[in-house]
Design a protein around this nucleic acid. Sequence first.
DNA 1: AATGAATGAGGGTTCATTCAT
DNA 2: TATGAATGAACCCTCATTCAT
Lengths: 203, 203, 203, 203
Amino acid sequence: MSATTSSPIEGAPATRARRADARQNADALVEAATELFAEAGVDVPARTIAARAGVGVGTLYRHFPLRSDLISAVFRRELDACVAAAAPLEEAYPPGEALDRWIMRYTQFVAAKRGLAAALHSGDPAYEPLATYFSTHLTPTLGRLLASARRAGEISQEVDAAEFLGAVADLCHGVRPGGAASGRAERMVGLLLAGLRSGEGGD
Amino acid sequence: MSATTSSPIEGAPATRARRADARQNADALVEAATELFAEAGVDVPARTIAARAGVGVGTLYRHFPLRSDLISAVFRRELDACVAAAAPLEEAYPPGEALDRWIMRYTQFVAAKRGLAAALHSGDPAYEPLATYFSTHLTPTLGRLLASARRAGEISQEVDAAEFLGAVADLCHGVRPGGAASGRAERMVGLLLAGLRSGEGGD
Amino acid sequence: MSATTSSPIEGAPATRARRADARQNADALVEAATELFAEAGVDVPARTIAARAGVGVGTLYRHFPLRSDLISAVFRRELDACVAAAAPLEEAYPPGEALDRWIMRYTQFVAAKRGLAAALHSGDPAYEPLATYFSTHLTPTLGRLLASARRAGEISQEVDAAEFLGAVADLCHGVRPGGAASGRAERMVGLLLAGLRSGEGGD
Amino acid sequence: MSATTSSPIEGAPATRARRADARQNADALVEAATELFAEAGVDVPARTIAARAGVGVGTLYRHFPLRSDLISAVFRRELDACVAAAAPLEEAYPPGEALDRWIMRYTQFVAAKRGLAAALHSGDPAYEPLATYFSTHLTPTLGRLLASARRAGEISQEVDAAEFLGAVADLCHGVRPGGAASGRAERMVGLLLAGLRSGEGGD
DNA sequence: AATGAATGAGGGTTCATTCAT
DNA sequence: TATGAATGAACCCTCATTCAT
């Protein structure tokens, strides 16, 4: 019985309709924000988002009182998908390759989401929840992949999963999907992964 | 006794003295901007910078009509020092080590200058001149170091100098000197350098 | 019972009521602008207008995003009244007198609206719409009056309606209602009208 | 012995040189202002004028502490020339034609001096001296021409010289030399002069 | 629950004017 | 006397956020 779910037994269909409406609005807002974050960064004006979603600003604030709430809503689903992509990769490939493939998937995701990297390292407390989401969901996933690869003798460098995720996100910074920088992030992340294999040991 | 140092035996006192004053203001502004860029990013309000320097806004605009002028003034000297540091390293060390040491020097510099990386990838045309400065000064320097290392058989990966510089700058993103992230940038750059040596060739 | 009059039997109360409020603000702004344009010219600061209307600047910009929007709002109604005044005069008086009377009415209107003339000839593109309004509404009206008078053999001079309107507006320039210059504009416009009758023909 | 002429006997040639320099600067400023007033109106920034004259702003303020001082300096010479043009016309032509010709000369002068008319009727006390100059120099000149013409039975309307001068200036408002409005002022002033002849008597 | 009007702080930039040199 | 650096008030305009309806 979460706080956002009201009593399971309620009679008025009107209320239910209301709720459905509200849900639709929230969805429209997330969709609009997704598009606009990609087009113009996470600092796009609130009114612009509301307008794109076809609702009033008030509605935006009702559903997402903090900007970070909207950011989280925008990225959470895809972040979850990213996490979920790990298991199949672990089954289908040997540890080293699973690691590479997952990181590349993550790279493409972050690169595609202009503003995500910026938000993560902005230092603005508003984005704390997003950082938290990373550390509770993505970091353990990468940690597992790294541990497997190490156990299999594939990587020799000691590396902190959170740090690595952050590094990859940073390398996607400023990349616009389809822009001139396309490919840059992937190449640099490739170097990072290659570095992981190098035999000099973790100093 | 350079022209900018006011000689004790002055030739045109009035003008010289005024110039010295103005110069001091410009210096104070650069200093204030340096601090504030580090504390709060390159988007810190013009008024704040002027106040910190103890001058009026008008003075800031007189000396640095464009924001990029101030950015350049803040970073140019140290950027030049960074470029100049390459030659001695090339003489004192074998190519591979010279490369590593120079990159680490560059890393520390960028990490110390919060806001530099952000400015570089902001996409704001105001920072174009800074990007240009990079491509005309730093990129050739790294290009030379990379070429030597490759000739010496030290590195096998194909890599674009500008891309690599950008990647390092990105990895320094969000790092506050002495902050919790300290060391992170260096570690990740180390991985990048290790990746350069890996034998898988440029794909 | 026009659409703009809030009917006592309201259909959609909430929205309607808000609209009424907003409308009142817009009206207050127009009123404040009218006064201030007269007192201090059309270049009076936006904040001053907002303050006089008892609203925030944002409200002013919401209702009148461009300065010319406010200008238009200030003058349009009276401009329309001026246009509408022509027909009755044409019916009630012979062509020559109708022309004189209408021009005098126009003169009094422009003289009462300090800033109108200035705006018209400022050359500032912001006031283009106002000039357009003149050429599409007032100019044809005067054109008709002039044509009738000429047909009736009352005037012999060839004159362009737009030019004549502009001239009258210019003659009202700097006139403050009730100020020392009062009467000056009317006298000079009278001379202009007398000149129209003179028999020397169009040169 | 005007107030601006210092003691006629002074020894130091250096001082004299100084004075010559100062005079040159003042002249350069007047010239620059003349150009800029025509190009951009009387509200052109002080620095722009100083720059065009090749002097510092301080020099501008030394010579013309008030903006109106500069305005006056700019127009006085030509205003004087305008006044001086009356006598020859009075000798060469019959009163009515002398009046017409002088008014047209005045019209062309004012039309050529963008900003003059605006300054005259701005209501800004800064331009008072200019208005005073008008009433003490130009007004009597026109008064004389009008009186002669009336005495000769050429004009029947009663008209105030100052008012008429103001009206002509207003009609030149917004006219840019060589611009689209060229000719408009002359045509309207022609109407005014024709009106002066009309036989309806001064009402 | 939705709306969007209103608020007003905030940041950029320009210039008139002063004044130390 | 000339200079031009410095000052800071004044304007413009844009949002984030609140709240009456």
